[in-house]
Design a protein around this nucleic acid. Structure first.
Lengths: 208, 208
DNA sequence: TGTTTTACTTAACACCGTTAAGTATGTTTG
DNA sequence: CAAACATACTTAACGGTGTTAAGTAAAACA
């Protein structure tokens, strides 16, 4: 009965082909290039074929957003080697900011766009985000264990830190910082990172 | 020569009618209800008529975003009567948060959506945002004059405060806080406001 | 009164997501 | 081996979008 197995495999390959193409178009040209017809053109199949592998466009964008979280997790991986909690916190902020600026479209999809998550009916849709946030909470906990980020609960601290850095990068990504002089991306990264460090330091902390 | 004046007046009225209708549809049903054909249906004109008064959909959404800033300014008006700078700062944060939660669609349009501003060719598109930010910077300056929000430039402080509260409300509005238990909107407002107060207090401040 | 300007509409183009029906091709069964 | 069936895919279409070009009728002007 190797036939049905081959079938299964082929089906999986096709699904992967669609996803890979969608991801490529998305990374290369952003949102607007990812239409069902567009992907279909690229893989040289009829548009309707995609619907045999994905329920609708939302399901596809959900997959893209997962890819974004996979990329972010990859960005965070080196943090595991940083033993000092506060250093890990700083590095995490820097890497978050850098990820956002280097992959603005993915960032939008992950944190700013309304559609693909809200519309989804299942409740575990935000699982990827949950994981990333758990990672942050762990770092916060470790910092607090060393006496930093004092005077506020771990949950609150994590939420505040995330909100702050998200606000920083999203205002930039959404082009709402035209007030400030035009500078290149690398400059934004360091500016945002400095603000992040300052914010962290402004938490009442026990001097060691 | 009263004719051309009447013409001018009628043209202005028609433009206002379109705008009012667009704003109503937007406020009532959010983004998706605002299509050119949709507005046209509502005012009982042909879709193409709108193009005689607005260059394209972006120009229309730009007008809607201005209306959002007018609403926010209205929300901020009572702050002029608050003489104590720090109290004014707190009130401003509360009103900003409340505005965002009560008008999420307008907030999205003003601060989160990519289209209507970036696409515009003129450079004064972000004028409304600039004004609001100038208002914040004034408050920060007054606070610093009394010894608060010390240790950082006025511009940086304003940017950090804005980023923080924007991050708080936008994560909520974009439904990225499913991690936290489902609570009603009023609860969110107070939670976010508390975090805001905490953030402000965490600035190194001279004890008075 | 004839000409021009103005305000508006109709029809169409090129997209979009999505669905229903049809067509081969490969697989299974009698 | 041939008939019945299932699978993978396509064609055609629906209803929607923003937008443009060409046409029309009425108002203003000469």
């Amino acid at each position: 009965m190797g036939i049905s197995e081959r079938r299964e495999r082929e089906k999986e390959e096709m699904k992967e082909l669609i996803l890979k193409t969608a991801n490529r178009l998305f990374a290369e040209n952003g949102f607007e290039k990812v239409s069902m017809r567009n992907i279909a053109d690229e893989i040289e199949y009829s548009p309707t074929t995609i619907y045999l592998y994905f329920k609708d466009k939302n399901e596809l964008f959900y997959a893209l957003h997962l890819e974004g979280f996979r990329m972010l997790a990859e960005e965070f991986r080196p943090l595991l080697d940083v033993s000092d909690p506060m250093e890990r916190m700083y590095q995490m902020g820097l890497r978050y900011i850098r990820f956002a600026f280097e992959n603005p479209d993915y960032y939008r999809l992950m944190f700013l766009v309304k559609d693909p998550l809200c519309t989804s009916e299942t409740d575990d849709t935000w699982e990827a985000g949950h994981n990333a946030h758990a990672f942050l909470e762990k770092v916060v906990m470790d910092c607090q264990a060393e006496g930093y980020l004092e005077g506020v609960s771990m949950r609150s601290a994590a939420l505040m830190i995330w909100s702050f850095v998200h606000g920083l990068v999203s205002l930039q990504i959404c082009d709402r910082m035209k007030l400030y002089q035009e500078v290149d991306r690398e400059q934004y990264v360091t500016d945002a990172f400095e603000a992040f460090q300052l914010m962290i330091r402004n938490f009442k902390s026990v001097e060691k």
